[in-house]
Design a binder for these strands. Structure first.
Length: 886
RNA sequence: GGGCGCAUAGCUCAGCGGUAGAGCGCUGCUCUUACAAAGCAGAUGUCGGCGGUUCAAAUCCGUCUGUGCCCACCA
């Protein structure tokens, strides 16, 4: 209450010098309340169309697509992070006058979404088969409607400046056309084919998945050694997957292996089956491993499949799609794990287990969606022949058409594209783009383009498989613009300017976009620059996960501290390509920063800061004014350079320190004296303060859009900072002023230190005499006295302390005796440090080798250091001498 | 098995050849007319170990230890 009354009084005092413009009597509370500010602002930006992009605009385009979030749920902190970076970049570009398109949308996320909806159904005790394909897909669309709404609500909350009117979904009519078009084209170019191969099969999802959807983990298995054959002709194989032996069609040994050479070409009996299988020689076998003999199961192991191909072996499938044994006999109908122990038991009964099973840790593939152990399975699937596409995708980066930030990441990119296997694109799912191929009654196969009628008639039916979800997201940079139509948007906004995404989907997504973009768009890669960011982690650098309990819902933090605070924290942690730890304390810190900006702007408004009119010429400005303008322009240049290099942490930090340490802690404090004096000096400072805040708010806007909008419009009375011009460096620099203010800061800090050490309360007024002769400080005497709470030296003034500093002397009259011991201790410590510095620098400056080889500026620097240390010694000695005895 | 990276203040991280930095945390004093979500002052590091290059090394090279990630058809 008391504070509120005091504030009212202050506001009254400033009535005598009102600011011009519509905001001269601002109604800003003393604390920034994000919740009251953020909500309304976003919808007004949307309503005014700031985020929409016009393909007909004469401005240069700047395009970036959203990495489409899966419709499986809600956004997490990682999305908030990614969106903050993209939003910051696009907001700056918009302010710089580009026709800016941030393309929004979502991904249907085939297998992931199907799984989520199947789980929903399971709660009702149903499976998708109870509904049938059509009804199930309908059900997924319903889910999409709900989940998608939630996601767009979160994006609004974050402040994402996306072109909502252009929002797309990978299962849209238009995007589905794009999918069909590219499929048909690839098919006709023989870059898509159908073939029976060993694929990664998930026995729970009941679909094939691609190599990168398999996650390998070390699992504890058991290696058992089994004797095949009888007597001298027997051979012992080692395996972790005994159940697949029912499908063995050979035993392989290394061609050079002396132990088994005599057996190659012979046949032995496969236990439990009565079948006879050949022993073949194959380079793939490692004679050092196990017994040096491998059982070969072409239908259930990728390596064995290849051995089978080389030796023309049959493939016998013994596991069905659920990974249940199909081979007739005692094991029929058993699950793979059940069968494994049953078969080992049966073999033991026959005395064929020669070495007891031993623990063996090996890498086993799991479905990235449901964690079920992958079953390699021979099956008929659709493939993209990646060779030529991947070559082009690699070359585009190699020849510099596409740049990857940070550059070290391009190594990983090359490792990947240069070793790419063909891509299995068919999925045995219901949710997704159905493959546009029709089969005829006589085994015909017709690929149907988007403008063609599918064949009809007796016996024709469409392929039931759908496409891998990454097939459609690979088209995202141009399908969202209306391709395959040659729309104005395609012409204008392709290629995209940049892509911002996590390094974790470099292979999944970026490589696919590169391949498809170059292929579909006549050799033009989809973007010029790829900016890869890290993963959000908790405050200890641990991975965030629901099961570990350290996952954070970004909305909770946005509710508590505001979106700006969350965004600023994330941006401030965003060093290129590395993971970003974030903790609630840090978000609080950012909220404090927002509040600080809020209050500094309140101060400016209460004191009539203005942005109207030309900036006064340098001759009419005080040293403080020139200093802060000089610094401001340096910071503009610095922040701009950081933006061009996607150094979000650096630019945020630079702004944080400039605003808080320089503008708020010094310039604003100095200006209090100026404003109190009034006159032309105050008039000029009001304009300068307005300028500095105006520019600082613009610079901060891309990262902290809400609070800057509220304050900037209050300060300037203009429409919106969203469409304000991005600041440019005017080139104004004033070394002399920077130095002069630096001296003021040094003096003030030194005297404050003394006051603090002497146990003086911060507010306590102290009579003092200032001798500033011979320095540039006289114009700052009032400010110095005010900052240090120094009163004029009255009649009974007796100096009890004399502080020589920066060539000036400050004499203080402390009513009681000063703590001489404390001060002496302090000064002695400083003196020792200074003497050490002199010793070190002197040693360098007398070192012949150093003088001969070090560059001039380094030598000069050392000289300066030595001189500074020497003058410190002089100063401190004088202070020590001036201390009263006792 | 390959490849990449990291070890700097209590915590999380910048710096990457010329006096050790930031945020948070910590200590002390304060409601000093924008802000206690604040102000002022302060403490804190043989920059993982060992060698080497250099006038000069947290920074470059080698090596050891610890640690993280990615890739791989280890039966």
């Amino acid at each position: 209450m008391a504070r509120a009354r005091r504030l009212a009084a202050v506001t009254d005092n400033t009535q005598q010098s009102p600011a011009s413009g519509p905001n001269s009597t601002p109604e800003l509370p003393t604390q920034y309340a994000p919740a009251e500010v953020e909500g309304q602002l976003y919808e007004s930006w949307v309503a005014r169309g700031y985020f929409e992009a016009d393909a007909k605009s004469p401005k240069d385009p700047f395009t970036v697509v959203i990495p489409p979030p899966n419709v499986t749920g809600s956004l997490h902190l990682g999305h908030a992070f990614e969106h903050t970076l993209i939003d910051a970049v696009t907001r700056r570009k918009r302010m710089q006058g580009f026709e800016t398109l941030w393309q929004p949308g979502m991904d249907h996320a085939g297998i992931a979404t199907q799984n989520v909806v199947e789980r929903e159904l399971a709660k009702e005790g149903k499976s998708r088969h109870d509904l049938g394909r059509e009804a199930f897909v309908e059900r997924v669309w319903q889910w999409k409607a709900e989940s998608g709404g939630q996601i767009s609500g979160q994006m609004r909350r974050l402040g994402d400046g996306v072109a909502w009117s252009r929002e797309r979904f990978t299962m849209d009519e238009g995007l589905s056309q794009a999918v069909q078009t590219i499929f048909k084209r690839l098919y006709d170019d023989e870059l898509i084919y159908r073939a029976e191969r060993i694929i990664n099969w998930c026995p729970r999802c009941l679909t094939a998945i691609s190599d990168i959807e398999v996650e390998y983990q070390d699992d504890d298995g058991e290696l058992v050694s089994i004797r095949y054959g009888e007597g001298d002709d027997s051979i012992v194989v080692a395996t972790t997957r005994a159940e697949t032996m029912l499908g063995d069609t050979a035993v392989a040994v290394h061609p050079e292996d002396e132990r088994y050479r005599h057996l190659v070409g012979t046949e032995i009996e496969l236990p439990l089956t009565g079948r006879r299988i050949p022993i073949v020689a194959d380079e793939h076998v490692d004679p050092e491993f196990g017994t040096g003999a491998v059982k070969v199961t072409p239908a259930h192991d990728p390596n064995d499949f290849e051995i089978g191909q080389r030796h023309d072996l049959p493939s016998i499938t013994v596991l069905d799609e659920h990974a249940v044994i199909t081979a007739h006999g005692p094991f029929l109908g058993q699950d793979r794990l059940e069968a494994r122990s049953a078969i080992v038991a049966a073999l033991r009964a026959e005395g064929r287990i020669v070495a007891e099973k031993r623990p063996y840790t090996h890498s086993v593939g799991h479905c990235s969606r449901c964690k079920t152990t992958i079953e390699p399975r021979l099956s008929m699937q659709w493939w993209v022949k990646t060779g030529p596409l991947a070559k082009a995708a690699g070359d585009a980066v190699r020849d510099g058409q596409v740049k990857i930030h940070p550059e070290e990441m391009s190594k990983r990119y090359f490792d990947w594209v240069d070793n790419l296997h063909d891509w299995c694109i068919s999925r045995q799912l219901w949710w997704g783009h159905r493959i546009p191929v029709w089969y005829g009654p006589d085994g015909e196969m017709v690929c149907v383009g988007p403008d063609e009628e599918p064949p009809s008639g007796e016996g024709w039916h469409q392929e039931t498989d759908v496409l891998d979800t990454w097939f459609s997201s690979g088209l995202w940079p141009f399908s969202t613009l209306g391709w395959p139509e040659r729309t104005e948007s395609v012409e204008r906004f392709y290629p995209n300017s940049i892509l911002v995404t996590g390094y974790d989907i470099l292979f999944f997504w970026v490589v696919r976009m590169m391949m498809f973009g170059i292929y579909a768009m006549d050799g033009t890669p989809p973007f010029h620059t790829v900016v890869l960011h890290g993963m959000v982690r908790d405050q200890f650098g641990k991975k965030m996960s629901k099961s570990f309990g350290n996952a954070v819902n970004p909305l909770d933090w946005m509710d508590a501290y505001g979106s700006d605070a969350v965004r600023f924290t994330l941006a401030r942690g965003a060093n290129p390509g590395v993971d970003v730890p974030i903790g609630e304390d840090w978000v609080q810190g950012s909220r404090n920063f927002a509040n600080k900006i809020w209050n500094a702007t309140r101060f400016a408004l209460m004191n009539g800061a203005t942005v109207e009119g030309e900036l006064p010429p340098a001759e009419r400005l005080s040293a403080a004014d020139r200093w802060i303008l000089s610094r401001l322009n340096s910071v503009v240049a610095e922040v701009d350079a950081y933006y061009e290099d996607y150094q979000f942490a650096k630019l945020s930090d630079a702004l944080f320190h400039f605003a808080w340490d320089e503008v708020f802690d010094w310039y604003v404090e100095l200006s209090k004296t100026t404003f109190a004096k009034g006159g032309a000096g105050a008039e000029a400072s009001r304009r300068v303060l307005g300028e500095v805040l105006d520019t600082t708010l613009r610079l901060l806007h891309p990262v902290m859009p809400f609070v800057t909008e509220k304050l900037w419009t209050a300060l300037t009375g203009r429409e919106s900072v969203v469409i304000a011009e991005w600041p440019t460096d005017s080139g104004f620099r004033d070394q002399a002023a920077e130095q002069e203010i630096g001296t003021v800061q040094q003096l003030v800090t030194e005297v404050r230190r003394f006051r603090s050490d002497q146990g003086l309360q911060p507010g306590q007024k102290v009579p003092a005499r200032l001798d500033l002769a011979g320095t540039a400080l006289p114009p700052h005497e009032d400010a110095i006295r005010s900052l240090l709470r120094l009163q004029p030296a009255g009649d009974g003034f007796t100096a009890t302390a004399a502080l020589p500093v920066v060539g000036a002397t400050v004499e203080l009259d402390l009513s009681g005796a000063i703590d001489v011991a404390a001060e002496r201790k302090r000064l002695t410590k400083d003196l020792t440090a200074a003497e050490k510095e002199v010793a070190q620098t002197s040693a360098k400056l007398t070192n012949e080798a150093f003088l001969a080889k070090a560059p001039d500026h380094v030598v000069e620097k050392i000289r300066t250091r030595k001189a500074a240390a020497e003058s410190d010694i002089e100063r401190i000695s004088a202070q020590l001498a001036a201390l009263p005895q006792g």
